[in-house]
Design a protein around this nucleic acid. Structure first.
Lengths: 195, 195, 195, 195
DNA sequence: CATGAATGAGACTTCATTCAT
DNA sequence: CATGAATGAAGTCTCATTCAT
């Protein structure tokens, strides 16, 4: 047994991602998560208030990360809007390439959180999407993107498209090259929105 | 004997859509569905094998309907591919406009079914998407749509985009006009794929 | 379909014997009994008060029959006690040979009835056994059987032995010849009790 | 952590014997067993897979015990076959004298297990009976017992007789002296089989 | 009488959560 | 902090029984 330096916190979170990805949130047992994390069942409750709290933390860390990366890209001065958008697509794909299980959870368990923690959840989700929209607006201003775009709609459009492709990829990775997916998304979306 | 008055069958299905939409599949109790359907708890089991069977039947009826409509559109001789595509978007939006709860279930509970009934589920899902793809291929042949499209990817792209928009609309209908959503989808996608 | 002249009463009883024999009382469903009897579920309740009542009637008819046959043998003037005893063994074996399913029910479901209908049940059971004991007493009087016998015990002894053999035979008829069983019982018991 | 105080394992088993004896297997509720065992309902499922598993374990422990005792008697060198047989009768009576409820379960719930777990059940049951038959064979060899005995039949004969007497005694102990029962069984059977 | 759809009480079992050590 | 045995609330499903036709 490798000795852990006490990152039980993180171990549990990682285990939970794996387990949620495989069985879905509701069919995932705390005892299974604990087992995968190499931790006693009771220990889970030392670090997390309850089962839902685990899911919440998974998303929080995810939004946090996504938001910061997106913000960095969005507020950068060097790139053009089209390139920023391009980079944003890349960013999200890179993240989930490293952790397909995370993609599954990200895609499938959002609804559960929205049903019970709507406010807290939406806030983070919106902050992240807003950074994307920031870039689109920039592009509209400088004439790169069409000014007919309804941004409130576009944000869900692009997010839904990506989410669904990630889901299908994570479920059956051999059906698609992730790189191929990302190229197609860029192509389809760019054509869709450019002026 | 006590003869069937009305269609308890259908009543239960409709009640289930409402309840699943509101609470999500796992937090929906059979007793609640029965209550909404105005039926005794046990009666649910006269018509459905178990809880999952209800969900399965909801989707089956949905795929059935979607598939037939799509097939009719796809195989028609009068319309151009672009118009067929247009009509397909309309069709799906009309369906869910009439029944927002169905949209919620459609969007959120797919994953659960795929986890447990993958084969049966995927078959119907694929048949439906194939009809859409049929039209895209037609459009590629006659030069309407770009031949660079990767159809395996596009099908998930467009489906994901629509699904997510429907979800967000069904959750908070006042945020969007459905009509607006559909126009934007058509615009974005058409631009994205046209030659 | 053969037209029944309305012996639903008997049809149900016969079906119940078959079903109880195969599944045991508790796992037997009324609907299954009705199906085997070629009758609607509800009709069962036209003829029987409830499930237990069916079992009760099966035993009642059985005791009735056994009691009368035994009484006839016991009170006859021609035979010697040893021959009467012999005939009694034959009688019971003949009955169950014709209807192995009845043997199964007879053997296995007695306890259930005793638990809930003790008085009613015991009365009939005792009346039947008493006729057997009557013969034994006769044999003791005339010196055929040992006067050391405790009749209260012997009645359960011989009945248990027969019951268990019938059970094992009914379950796997090819393991034993019924005739062989009956000869052995006679031999063992006769030796056991004779003076 | 909460450590095991005492043997909940055993407590539940003992409680189950009492409850099964009183109500019969099917009418016994897990909650009742838990209550008698002074344990929470859920705890039962920490130690046993399900209700049937409890019954199975009761019988397993019983066969185990009976088999070992019988084997010890059967394979001993000091006693004569007739004395071994005698001791075997004693042994079984001593066991159930200490625990009448066990006798009830032993007698009444066998059939349920045979219906669903036939193989596993029969194996242990047969092993136990075989030791008894071993002694009978020994007695036939040395001329103590009649060589006309059909052993396959005799085993069920004697077992059924004992079972039924135990049942009737356990149900109404004041009707019989156990000692009286055992003497009569020995007498009847010995006479029945001796040469 | 006959029917079989409808009922709803009831029991098994699961599993998130607690808590004594 | 860590543990995992213990808990008990809660929900699915079964099926004997009823009853409107």
């Amino acid at each position: 047994m490798r000795t852990k330096e006490g990152n039980k916190d993180k171990d549990i979170l990682e285990a939970a991602v794996k387990v949620f990805a495989e069985y879905g949130y509701h069919k995932s047992k705390i005892s299974k998560i604990a087992e995968v994390a190499n931790v006693a069942t009771g220990s889970v409750y030392v670090y997390f208030k309850n089962k839902e709290d685990i899911l919440l933390r998974i998303f929080e860390e995810l939004w946090e990360k996504l938001f910061h990366e997106y913000r960095k890209i969005a507020r950068g001065k060097e790139l053009q809007p089209a390139n920023k958008f391009d980079k944003m697509i890349d960013m999200i794909f890179d993240l989930f390439t490293e952790n397909p299980a995370l993609a599954m959870v990200f895609v499938n368990e959002q609804n559960h959180l929205m049903l019970t923690n709507e406010d807290q959840f939406t806030k983070n989700y919106d902050k992240f999407l807003d950074e994307g929209i920031f870039v689109i607006k920039e592009g509209i201003s400088d004439g790169t993107f069409s000014k007919d775009l309804d941004l409130a709609i576009f944000r869900h459009y692009i997010f839904g498209a990506i989410r669904n492709l990630l889901h299908n990829w994570a479920k059956e990775p051999r059906n698609f090259t992730l790189n191929n997916i990302r190229q197609n998304i860029k192509y389809l979306t760019m054509n869709g929105i450019k002026n």
